[in-house]
Nucleic acid binder design. Structure first.
Lengths: 110, 110
DNA sequence: TCAATATATCGTAATAATACGATTAACAGA
DNA sequence: TCTGTTAATCGTATTATTACGATATATTGA
C-alpha cells in the first residue's frame, strides 16, 4: 500500500472508506443490483406490498414473467430481498438486515 | 394507480419510498455508477486523495488511460464526482452535495 | 512556435446484461 | 391422478458495458 501524499493545499478528506475484499464486493453487488429501473421498481413495490408473490409483480411490471423472475433472482443474490415458498407461490420481502447493513456502510463511507 | 390490498396477516411496511420520475432516475444512475469495481475503487481513492488528477488514478488502477477516463466520465455524469481543469490536468473531488443527497434518499427509503 | 504533458474522445472488439418464449418443476384441489 | 396455478430455469437474440489503442485537444514551458 502506497503512503498518502496529500499536499497541504488539497482539500481534506471528507470521510473514511475502509472496506475491502468480500465486503466491498458485496456492497458493489448491491449497488449494481439497484442500478436498474425495473429492479428499483420492484423494491418500491415490496416496500408498500411486503409479502407479495411473484405474480403480483408480474401484473404490476410491464415485463414478461421470465424477466421479472430473473430480476428477482438478481435482487435475491445481491441480498436486497428474501423469498419464501408458500405452496406453489413465492412470497417476497425486503431483507431488512442486509438493507440495514447497506445503509450503515454507506453512512460510514460518505 | 392500484389500491393497496394488504391482508392483515402480511408484515407491515418497514418504511416509505416516495420517489419518482427525475429523482428516481438520478438515484438509479448513482446506484448503477457505483455498481462497478473499478469505479468503486476510484471513489475510495478520491476519499483519501481528494483533488488528485486523472493521471494519479491511471497510475493507481490496472487499466488503460482511456478506460479510467471513461469511468471518470460515468462518475461525473452520475454526480458522484466533480472535475476542475487545472492547466493541462483535471483535478477530481467527491461531489459532496450530491453524495449527501444520495445518503439522505437512501436513509429516507430504507 | 515546438515539444512535452495530461486528458478526453473515437472506433471497435469482447463480454455482460436484458428480455422474451418455451420448458420444467412443484404444489393444490377436484 | 389429473388439471390448473405459480415460478424458476433454459436457450437465445438484442442491446449495453467494458476495455483498449489510436487520435484529437488543450495547456505549459523552453
Amino acid at each position: 500500500m502506497k503512503e498518502l501524499d496529500i499536499t497541504p493545499t488539497l482539500p481534506e478528506a471528507c470521510c473514511t472508506l475502509d472496506i475491502t475484499g468480500q465486503e466491498q464486493q458485496q456492497l458493489v453487488n448491491m449497488f449494481k443490483a439497484l442500478g436498474n429501473p425495473s429492479r428499483f421498481e420492484i423494491m418500491k413495490y415490496l416496500v408498500t406490498h411486503p409479502g407479495c408473490i411473484t405474480d403480483d409483480l408480474v401484473q404490476f411490471l410491464p415485463q414478461a414473467q421470465a424477466t421479472v423472475s430473473q430480476h428477482l433472482k438478481v435482487l435475491r443474490d445481491a441480498g436486497w430481498i428474501v423469498g419464501t415458498t408458500k405452496g406453489p407461490a413465492t412470497s417476497y420481502c425486503l431483507h431488512d438486515d442486509n438493507i440495514a447493513w447497506f445503509r450503515e456502510k454507506v453512512g460510514d463511507i460518505f
